[in-house]
Nucleic acid binder design. Structure first.
Lengths: 312, 312
DNA sequence: TATAGCCGTTGCCGAAACGGCAGCAACATG
DNA sequence: CATGTTGCTGCCGTTTCGGCAACGGCTATA
């Protein structure tokens, strides 16, 4: 089912690989063929699409415009294919997800497992990244669904849903703070804390609040792995900060205690956004999973906010 | 700038014309070439795209799916072209509008004139249709922007804006009702009325209200031309029903008087919707006009509702 | 400074795709 | 039954495409 001129696909491959020869290897054709198609495209458009650097090609402004168009075409072709396939009863395809680490402990594995239980022919690709990298991967068409901290998102992305979860302190069961219902940041800073490095978005949530406090914090550990921070907290090394989503199993096993943060009487929210390329209609199987994802996150949001009602 | 395989464009032409030979004439190629491209497409997709009737071709289900994809591709290609053109400073293209008759008296001509005053290189195509035909033309990709009564719209269309205007009685200056501020339907029906035929959406707005009244109405005139109804009312033939949008000049010349309808104490609204294909990003020049259209209609809505405040 | 390894591009040539022409059968209309 | 129109199919010249080998430009390394 290849009714689009090869130029389109060649261009797409060159953009992704950043090199004509590399694209040719991926496409299983001679590099000369790729080169000629690109040159022909540039002649048709009337403007160069790539800047030829010594070590590969970079998109020009016009090239980026064409890349957007080509992405729209190829993604819509995917959708068309899945539409035709679903007509004859066969649901198959791959859902590609880019998400931040907090989802990997329980939300995503459970959802994927349950979904594959019902739709065996749908496969998944998931890539864990930082929030801004998630949005970038989505913009570049390298993922279908993105889950990231709800920062300002580029206009070519659409925020399908926005779920807010309470940020809290995470301590071991034996920790002195563990008997409290909620904690303030100041109370936490009296103990050794496990800080997130700036590449994690928790850092940007907490930093402004910490800056307001004038106290000298206890010596702290810094890490960029949520998994590591969680395990450190479980071993009583210190106080970590997370949403309850990121704790998961250790919380159920009662090794960890989650204490909602209380910032001058109001909760500290961590906003989770679900994103999709705006100029795109998702294939049916992707849309189906997306709906489940939104529903599940909404369900968790509801449950957590019921368990820890407003401080005020 | 034709970097899409001919099959795409041929298919699109065949779909629009409903015949291979007609498409070939439009495309300036031999009919055999078109026929072969369609056959090749069907082979690639693995399913017939058209039903061959004796007198032309009709889309199959799969064909309609492909038509949707092809429409997305070609419309997005248009957008890409306009993006590239605007990069080199030249804004040009054609905005195609499908709308109902009430817009043709003042809103649309003024907007188009003012827009062309600023952007000389943008041309316009406008087609006046009934509300449901407007939506259909939009779905088929025969128009960029649709303005119609806000009925339920198909899911492949997006309602960009919804503006409500008061439905009112329209009478000549000398008409006995002309001195009133508002009128009820019952008061109107005491006089000869000019009814809309079912093909106009005013009919569907008024019919349920008329059905509630048990009175025997005066002998009425029925028409399907808003222009005709307006001119009839201006000549004192009877009471017509319209939104103020549809009166325009004759109202400014004080030949006609607009009397908002009062239905058991509440206004009768006529909802005007502005529509666009959902799976599409508009070219910049089209988007620009669309914004002006929405703004202008919003402005009129505001002015009218200020002139005729709530009845209650 | 010389060399090896990439890079994109180009000439050449066989293969594949495309399009035009004329003619076919099928069907509708009168 | 004649006529017109429909889509389809051999045949054939033209265009396009892709593979191979080679060239010049560049970087990194010895």
């Amino acid at each position: 089912m290849r009714f689009h001129s090869p130029a389109i696909q060649y261009f797409h491959a060159v953009r992704r690989t950043g090199s004509i020869r590399a694209a040719a290897r991926v496409l299983n054709v001679a590099s000369s063929a790729v080169s000629r198609q690109i040159l022909k495209l540039e002649q048709e458009v009337g403007s160069p699409l790539f800047e030829r650097n010594a070590r590969g090609l970079t998109l020009t402004t016009v090239g980026e415009m064409l890349a957007r168009h080509v992405m729209n075409v190829l993604q819509d072709l995917d959708r068309f294919r899945s539409d035709v396939a679903s007509l004859s009863g066969t649901w198959h395809g791959t859902v590609s997800i880019a998400c931040i680490e907090s989802l990997t402990e329980s939300v995503l594995p459970e959802l994927i497992a349950s979904h594959r239980g019902r739709a065996r022919r749908v496969s998944f690709t998931t890539e864990v990244k930082g929030s801004s990298d998630v949005l970038e991967a989505l913009s570049r068409g390298e993922a279908d669904i993105g889950i990231a901290m709800a920062l300002r998102h580029p206009p070519d992305l659409r925020q399908v849903a926005l779920k807010r979860f309470r940020l809290g302190a995470v301590v071991a069961r034996e920790h002195p703070l563990a008997r409290r219902k909620t904690v303030t940041l100041a109370q936490c800073l009296a103990f050794p804390v496990i800080h997130a490095l700036p590449e994690l978005s928790i850092y940007h949530l907490l930093q402004p609040l910490i800056a307001q406090l004038s106290e000298t914090p206890e010596p702290a550990i810094q890490a960029n792995s949520i998994d590591l921070m969680r395990e450190l907290a479980a071993r009583g090394v210190g106080v970590a900060f997370q949403t309850q989503l990121g704790i998961g199993r250790l919380s159920r096993d009662s090794q960890l205690v989650f204490l909602p943060l209380d910032n001058a009487g109001s909760p500290v929210w961590s906003d989770l956004g679900i994103y999709v390329r705006a100029e795109r209609t998702l294939p049916a199987y992707t849309e189906s999973f997306l709906q489940e994802l939104v529903r599940e996150l909404g369900e968790r949001e509801r449950r957590e906010n019921a368990a820890y009602p407003q401080v005020s």
